[in-house]
Each structure stands twice: as structure tokens, then as C-alpha cells.
């Protein structure tokens, strides 16, 4: 058991180290002179050199790498080339929006999807099941940004129910409650659209797992024991499904960062996703490097956490994991 965790943690650290090296190399090989991108080309060579020095780009590569690792591990990501403010400060101002957006929509879609998926599995051949089978294929085929753009067009442009862009009105309204209401009004459509895009996949996934489990011998035997339907569905079928669902939930967390990039671009939200896009397209090494490091950190910790949780919720794993994988 201990050896297993040591190995998992070891490989997590290895991946983080790899990401650090890749990050460092990737962004130092990017085309486009970073100094040129932040300053006027008409600057004197002395001024350019001084800027290079400020950002440490004049030092030899090993020194640059050492400084990079040291500062990254202490979450000091340097100054953003594009905005001229510390990257950490930029991230901190954006993170709450992204967390609100992703957290609420993921929770909504997972809960709704699980509920509908269970219902569909219990009522094979029903209209609901057909809808869910269909919605899974649709949510897999329709580009998320297209659905969001269409919603935006319908409910913000054609029927101006929701705002077209932004996280807050300009200028923001005064007063705590008014500010909160304004924020919720701005976040409603992005959150709703992300949840809408996500729940079909969840429902289909849960439905498929549930159909498989409902066909197992132990469910037939639970019926043979004369247990009420609720016990069978929740106490046996869903309880068996739960570890897998929790794992998938955690493992899907890093992936929804992609959703943040798209959604924040479509709705012009002040979030981490759009920051990442701007950093990548604007050759903003410190910002992009920080984003990628944090993304890797998120991925690795979600993987570890899902392993941990699986071990806690599924008794079958507690023993087997010792030697396998």
C-alpha cells in the first residue's frame, strides 16, 4: 500500500518536473522576440538590453533555468509581458471568475446528467432514453463554441435578456447586492451554456454504466431478495457506480479548462482561460508558463486525488492496488 502511494507520488512529481523543463524550453524557442513584442521597435538598443536584463533573458540558459524553477516553485511567475503586472496578480484577479464558471456548470451538468442517466437506464426504450442517446451524439458533434455563440445570438443579441459580453457591467453598479446581481446576470448564460453542453455526455455515460450494472447478477439477486426498487437502485446499483463516477468527475476537471478557454472567449469573460489564450498568442512567456505549470499541477493532483478517492470508495481496489498497475 505504502509502496503504491510512493510510486504514484513519484510519477506525479516526475511529470511536474517534465512540464517545468518543457515549459522552459517551449517558450524560449517560440518565434517572435519577446522583448520586441512588449516595446516599441524604435527603442534604442540600450533600452532593449536593459529590458532583457530586467527579465533575465541575457543570462546563459542554465542560469535562466535555475531561476525559472526556483521562482515557479514559489509561485512567483514574474511580470507579464503584455500587461506589465505580476502574473500572479493577474491570475488572482481572474481565478474567482473561472472557478465560479467551471465549478457551477460542472456541478450542474454532473448532477443533472447523473440523474437523467439513471432515469434513462431504468426506463429502457422510453422517450427519455432515446433523447439521452441522441443528446450524447449531439453534444459530441456540435462544437461547444457554436452552441454558445447561438445562445448568445438568441438571448443576448436578438432577445436582449442577457448581456453580450463581460463579467460586470461598465461601469459596475454600486452596492453589494446590486453588484452581486449584476455578476450573476453576466455569468448566467455562460454557466447555463456550459452545463447544457456537459450534461448530455454525463447522462449518456451514466446511462451506459448503469445499464451494464443493472444487467449484473447481483442486481437480479437483489431483486430476488424482494428489496424495494429504491434500495436496489440507490443502495446497490448506484453505490457500485459511485467510485467510477467520482473518478471520472475528478479526471474531467483538467479537461474543462479547455471549456474555460472557449467560454471565456465567446462571452468575453475576465478569466484564466482567456488569459491563457492571450498569453499564448501574444508570446507572453511568463504568463503562458505560469498557466501551463498550474494546469499541470491541477492535472497531476486530480489524478492523485482520484486514485485516493477510488481506493476509499471501492473496497475491491484497497487490496488489489498494492501490487497492480
Amino acid at each position: 500500500m505504502k509502496g503504491y502511494w510512493a510510486r504514484r507520488t513519484g510519477s506525479a512529481l516526475l511529470i511536474l518536473g517534465l512540464v517545468l523543463v518543457l515549459n522552459f524550453m517551449l517558450f524560449r524557442m517560440m518565434p517572435g522576440d519577446p522583448v520586441a513584442s512588449i516595446i516599441d521597435p524604435n527603442f534604442s538598443p540600450e533600452a532593449k538590453a536593459r529590458l532583457s536584463q530586467v527579465y533575465g533573458l541575457d543570462k546563459p540558459l542554465p542560469v535562466q533555468f535555475w531561476r525559472y524553477v526556483k521562482s515557479t516553485l514559489s509561485f512567483d511567475f514574474g511580470i507579464s509581458f503584455l500587461t506589465g503586472r505580476p502574473v500572479m496578480e493577474e491570475l488572482r484577479s481572474r481565478l474567482p471568475n473561472t472557478v465560479t464558471l467551471l465549478g457551477t456548470s460542472l456541478l450542474l451538468s454532473a448532477l443533472l446528467g447523473t440523474w437523467l442517466g439513471m432515469k434513462a437506464a431504468l426506463r429502457r426504450g422510453s422517450f427519455l432514453e432515446k433523447c439521452i442517446l441522441w443528446s450524447g451524439a449531439v453534444s459530441f458533434s456540435f462544437p461547444s463554441f457554436f452552441v454558445q455563440l447561438t445562445l448568445l445570438m438568441a438571448f443576448a443579441a436578438a432577445l436582449p435578456v442577457f448581456p453580450l459580453r463581460g463579467t460586470l457591467s461598465v461601469p459596475p453598479p454600486a452596492g453589494g447586492m446590486a453588484l452581486l446581481a449584476d455578476y450573476l446576470w453576466h455569468m448566467a448564460l455562460p454557466v447555463f451554456s456550459l452545463a447544457l453542453l456537459g450534461f448530455g455526455g454525463w447522462a449518456l455515460y451514466v446511462r451506459n454504466l448503469m445499464v451494464k450494472i443493472l444487467g449484473e447478477d447481483f442486481i437480479l439477486l437483489a431483486r430476488a431478495r424482494g428489496l424495494p426498487q429504491r434500495n436496489i437502485v440507490m443502495g446497490h446499483a448506484f453505490r457500485t457506480l459511485l467510485p467510477t463516477l467520482l473518478t471520472i468527475f475528478l479526471l474531467s476537471l483538467p479537461g474543462i479548462v479547455s471549456g474555460a478557454v472557449i467560454t471565456e472567449t465567446v462571452f468575453s469573460l475576465h478569466g484564466v482561460g482567456r488569459f491563457l489564450l492571450e498569453a499564448v498568442t501574444g508570446h507572453d512567456y511568463p504568463a503562458a508558463g505560469a498557466s501551463f505549470f498550474l494546469l499541470a499541477l491541477l492535472t497531476v493532483s486530480c489524478n492523485l486525488l482520484s486514485d485516493l478517492l477510488y481506493g476509499v470508495t471501492d473496497p475491491r481496489v484497497r487490496m488489489e492496488r498494492g501490487g497492480r498497475r
Partner: peptide, 20 residues
Amino acid sequence: DLLLSIPLLPILMALAALWG
């Protein structure tokens, strides 16, 4: 396992910006 666990879009973004 490694490639499956990393989110695809950010990587694609970086590579598209890096490589052309």
C-alpha cells in the same frame, strides 16, 4: 496514460502558436 491525462486544447494552442 500521460497523454490521456493532459488537457488537449491548451497543448494544441501552445503548439499551434509555437510551430506555425
